[in-house]
C-alpha cells in the first residue's frame, strides 16, 4: 500500500474517532451579549415623479375617479390616466441586533436619587479671620458658601462635623452666605446660627 494512502486511512480513522468531540465556543454568544437597538427618526425623503410631465389635456380626458382613503377624510382626485405611481415601501424605524465580541455599557439616569441628596459643607473655621463677637457664646464652626434663600432644610452631621443642605431645586436665588455655628453659654445653652453675606464687603 502506498504511504500516502496509508496516511489518509489513519486520518479517516481519527476523524471518525473524534467526530463531534471537539467543540468550538465563541467568546460571546447572542444569549449573553448586550442587545443593541438603533433608533433613528431621520429619514431621507426620495422624491419620485409619480405622474407624467404636466401637459394640457382636453376636458374629456380628465378622470373623475376618486381614491377613497380608509379614514374617509381625504379624497384625492387622479388628474390623468397616465399618472404612474410607485410602491412606497416603509423602512423599519428600528434595527435590532447583538453586540458580539464587544461590550456595551448601559447608562442609567440617576436624577431620582441625586435630587434628594443633600450638599455637604465642611467646617472652615480654621480659615476664618473675622469671627463674630462672642459675648456669652463660643464659636464652634463656620460653613460656606450656602445659598441661604434656596435652603429647604439643613442638618448638622455631628459625627463628621459637616452641614448638610437640601436646596429647593427650583430656586433661582444665588447670593452666597456663610454661617457661623455658636454655642450659647449659661442657662438654657443651645446652639445659634449667625448668617452673613459671603460676597459682601464684610464677608469673612
Amino acid at each position: 500500500m502506498e504511504p500516502a494512502t496509508r496516511t489518509e486511512e489513519i486520518r479517516d480513522y481519527f476523524r471518525r474517532l473524534f467526530l463531534g468531540k471537539v467543540r468550538v465556543h465563541s467568546l460571546s454568544t447572542p444569549g449573553s451579549a448586550s442587545a443593541v437597538e438603533i433608533r433613528t427618526g431621520k429619514r431621507t425623503i426620495a422624491v419620485h415623479r409619480g405622474a407624467s410631465a404636466a401637459r394640457v389635456v382636453s376636458v374629456s380626458l380628465v378622470g373623475t375617479r376618486s381614491i377613497l382613503c380608509p379614514s374617509k377624510t381625504l379624497q384625492m382626485r387622479s388628474l390623468s390616466r397616465d399618472a404612474k405611481g410607485i410602491a412606497i415601501v416603509p423602512y423599519p424605524d428600528e434595527a435590532h441586533g447583538w453586540a458580539i465580541g464587544e461590550r456595551a455599557s448601559g447608562v442609567r439616569n440617576g436624577m431620582r436619587i441625586m435630587r434628594v441628596l443633600p450638599q455637604e459643607r465642611v467646617n472652615r473655621s480654621s480659615y476664618v479671620t473675622r469671627r463674630p463677637l462672642s459675648g456669652k457664646r463660643i464659636f464652634l464652626a463656620f460653613f460656606s458658601p450656602v445659598i441661604y434663600e434656596a435652603i429647604l432644610k439643613t442638618a448638622l452631621n455631628r459625627q463628621k462635623g459637616t452641614l448638610l443642605i437640601w436646596y429647593n431645586l427650583e430656586s433661582r436665588a444665588q447670593t452666597p452666605y456663610g454661617t457661623f455655628l455658636m454655642k450659647k453659654l449659661g442657662e438654657g445653652g443651645g446652639f445659634e446660627w449667625e448668617w452673613s453675606r459671603a460676597d459682601g464687603p464684610n464677608g469673612v
Binding site: R103, Q119, A150, Y167, L169
Partner: peptide, 17 residues
Amino acid sequence: DFRGIPLDFRYTEPIRP
C-alpha cells in the same frame, strides 16, 4: 450649576470583565 444644584446625573451599569 454653579450653586451645586444637580442638573443631570448618569451612571453606568457595573462591568466586570
